[in-house]
């Protein structure tokens, strides 16, 4: 790929960097406990938690770094951190 003049780029390219590979602990979302408040989605530094059908939330493991902020802050204790199996 030819270089862009002046070291510029269009959006979307950061997604080439799959930060999910950094993960040591993996958040497991328990939809039975989830109140669908959306706090996890708001506070995720990656912005990788998405609402799926019926309003349940799930992380995109391609990018989730496993920081555990969602698990720590979830008011329903619906997110459990588990050791990543590699």
């Amino acid at each position: 790929m030819a270089l862009a003049i002046g070291c510029r780029a269009k959006p979307g390219k950061s997604r080439d960097n799959k930060t999910g590979s950094w993960r040591v602990f993996k958040p497991i979302f328990n939809h039975e406990k989830c109140s669908q408040c959306g706090l996890c989605q708001t506070i995720c530094p990656e912005g990788c938690i998405h609402e799926e059908e019926e309003g349940f939330l799930n992380p995109d493991y391609t990018y989730c770094k496993g920081c555990g902020l969602c698990s720590e802050e979830c008011p329903s204790e619906a997110i459990e951190m588990k050791q990543e199996e590699k």
Partner: peptide
């Protein structure tokens, strides 16, 4: 967007979002 290289749990990354 996703794929940025901030540390896990970065306050600045959350601020940017």
């Amino acid at each position: 967007d996703c794929g940025h290289r901030a540390c896990g749990g970065c306050g600045a990354a959350l601020a940017a979002r």
